[in-house]
């Protein structure tokens, strides 16, 4: 479970990005985070990744309060969170296989054979098993984002966080990627997806949380085209 309890985030320059935010996300739940530019969406993901620290309040992920977690525990913590970015962030000089395997190697402990089977399994989940030996430059944007998703899930995270994962993709590919992210729910993962594409979000009939100027202004399940 993820829980923001009276979370305020103020950046050093004095800008308040999140203003006394309260939000609960259950295990295995899928949530879209929406809002205008500057609403504080990316700030939420940065707090969840413990890239930034809350200024005040509590942020619980499972049984850890990120407001109190020691810096030395951050690497271990992040291994259980899968993250996907708008710009994919793949290694250009590594093949698809190596990009995904990298996340396993960083964590260590897997034999070469184990790495191979696990990477190929993940590539199958995202439908890229035949592109294992390609380089990112040889893939479409949607395919690159699927590689990033495979990398995000290879360490079996309990939570997946995606910040504008379809921001660089055309509508058809966007649908595909969102579809895959929603599908992660079926693997029991908690999924938090930041997007500003309202039309796209509505199509998936999931919970949508709305932010405005760092405050919660909406929290509903959208069924189809209502509203």
């Amino acid at each position: 479970m993820i829980e923001f309890k009276n979370v305020t985030k103020r950046y050093p320059e004095g800008k308040i990005a999140l203003d006394n935010l309260n939000l609960k996300i259950n295990d295995g739940e899928f949530v879209f985070i929406m809002g205008d530019s500057g609403a504080g969406k990316t700030t939420m993901t940065k707090l969840l990744l413990r890239e930034e620290r809350v200024t005040s309040g509590e942020l619980w992920v499972g049984d850890v309060n990120l407001a109190k977690m020691r810096a030395s525990r951050i690497p271990k913590y992040r291994r259980r969170i899968g993250v996907v970015f708008q710009d994919f962030r793949l290694f250009k000089q590594k093949t698809v296989f190596e990009n995904v395997a990298f996340a396993l190697r960083v964590v260590g402990g897997a034999s070469a054979a184990e790495v191979k089977t696990r990477v190929m399994t993940m590539l199958k989940v995202v439908g890229l098993e035949d592109k294992a030996n390609n380089f990112p430059a040889q893939l479409s944007g949607g395919e690159q984002q699927r590689v990033a998703l495979a990398r995000a899930i290879i360490n079996n995270p309990h939570t997946i966080i995606a910040d504008e994962p379809t921001g660089n993709l055309d509508p058809k590919l966007s649908m595909e990627i969102m579809g895959l992210l929603v599908q992660m729910k079926e693997y029991g993962k908690t999924v938090v997806v930041v997007t500003h594409e309202a039309e796209l979000a509505k199509m998936f009939h999931q919970r949508i949380v709305r932010l405005k100027d760092g405050r919660l202004v909406g929290d509903d399940i959208y069924g189809g085209d209502t509203l």
């Binding site: 990744l49 690497p75 992040r78 291994r79 962030r89 990298f102 960083v106 360490n155």
Partner: peptide
């Protein structure tokens, strides 16, 4: 630096 950023998000230890 980009690789380092990725490694950090993946949870690579400081030593690594």
């Amino acid at each position: 630096r980009d690789e380092i950023t990725i490694m950090r998000y993946i949870g690579a230890s400081r030593t690594y």
